[in-house]
Amino acid sequence: MVFHNGGGRPRPTLLRRWGLTAALLVLALLAYCVHDAVSLPGKDGASAKLARWSRCHYLGYVADVVDGHPRTAPSGDCSASDALTQAQPLAAAKPKPRPTPTVTPVPLHARVRPLVSPARPGEGVFTPLSLVKGQPVIQSATMRPDPYDTDFPVGVVWMRNKALTFQLHPGAEEPGGSWAVPSTIPAGRRTGLLAAYNGGFKLSNGDSHGGFYLNGRTAVPLRSGAASEVFHRDGSLSVGVWNQDVAMAPDVVGVRQCLVPLVSHGAVTDAVRYGGTDVWGLTDGGNASVPRSGVGIDRHGDIVYVGGRELTVQSLATVLQRAGAVTAMMLDINLSWPSFISYDGKRQPRDPVPHNLVNFVRDATRYYDESSRDFVAVYARR
């Protein structure tokens, strides 16, 4: 049907208007698509990109005109590059790498300034004694006590407190009695064993001037002001003056007291300089230089042990202080008692081989047998 205006000229029908509008929309969409097609990333030219887009959208005849020769199928991967019909997939999120656990390396302890000058090569220099996971958690050094006793070196041991467990063992006679902890290191308790060392003066006759406490039981009353080894539930060890530096607490499982401090606040005490046998005990033959031993703690909380066959009270205190002890105490003295033993479990972890630190008179297996006096066993901490 055609409508005429007054002048007789026909007007466009509604259908033609709709058709023209649709054509314009198609052309606009085509122009948009072609623009996006040639704008795709890549080294190909605009004609190659347009041809590829045409074949991917089933317009092969257009591609033939652009390329100048016919093809029967699209080339390349249409789905991967068709940014007009589908969204690009998001890149998979890469998992964050987990940090590799690191073990803080344990450095070798600084050299201890020897007692004798001039020093011999290697004197006072620490070397690894026991390794845990490749780290030298127990280290040792030796030095001469004086220019004459060259056959009786002093042994110095440094122990990393956080890497070790210290366990107090009662002796069969000192303090005596029946305990859940044995007076030996039995065959079933040697795995992880790294070291053992002697306890203090006798408790039964009051020579120690201090007490003994283990697992809630007091064998000899603890004394305020006494130098004390304090054993904690987590296996760590403290050394201090009772009720001054250290005291009873819920985590304390053992206390071994002996005399007064050799070193306090990093300095050798006046008792060392002026004390006599009433302070430091009777010695074999009344000699000043006899087998002696002592233990201390440094400013980092690590443990220092010193022992040897020929030591005065002054030389023992001096070596402990030079080795870094800020608080230190004497342990046992005279020929049969001082000892530091290391254990090598490389071949037999459940039954490690014992070795004396220096030439102590007792055999290195002494704590594998029943001990008449108390001692300390040192294990690798689990």
Rank of each mutant, 00 (worst) to 15 (best):
F3W: 13
H4C: 10
G8W: 08
P12V: 00
P12D: 04
T13V: 09
G19E: 15
A22K: 08
A23M: 15
L27I: 10
V34S: 11
V34I: 12
D36K: 14
P41W: 04
P41C: 06
P41D: 04
G45I: 02
A46L: 15
R52C: 09
R55N: 04
V62R: 11
V65Y: 11
D67N: 14
D67A: 08
T72R: 15
A80S: 13
T85V: 12
T85A: 13
Q86P: 08
A87D: 15
A93K: 10
P95T: 02
P95K: 05
K96Y: 13
R98V: 12
H109Y: 07
H109L: 07
P114D: 00
P118R: 02
A119C: 03
A119R: 04
G124E: 03
L131T: 05
G134H: 10
Q135Y: 07
I138C: 10
T142L: 10
P145F: 04
T150G: 02
D151C: 09
P153E: 06
V157E: 03
W158Q: 07
W158M: 02
M159Q: 12
F166A: 06
A172C: 01
E174T: 03
W179F: 02
V181H: 00
S183A: 12
I185R: 05
R190I: 02
Y197Q: 01
F201H: 14
N205R: 13
D207I: 04
H209T: 08
F212Y: 06
Y213E: 03
L214T: 01
N215S: 11
S224Y: 08
G225P: 04
V230T: 05
F231L: 01
N243T: 08
Q244I: 02
A247M: 13
L259G: 05
L262I: 04
H265R: 15
W280D: 06
G285N: 11
V295M: 10
G296A: 05
D302E: 04
R309F: 02
R309E: 14
Q314F: 05
L316S: 05
L316D: 05
T318N: 09
Q321Y: 10
G324A: 06
A325S: 12
V326M: 12
I333R: 11
F340Y: 14
Y367H: 15
Y367W: 15
D369F: 14
E370H: 10
S372W: 10
S372G: 13
D374S: 05
F375N: 09
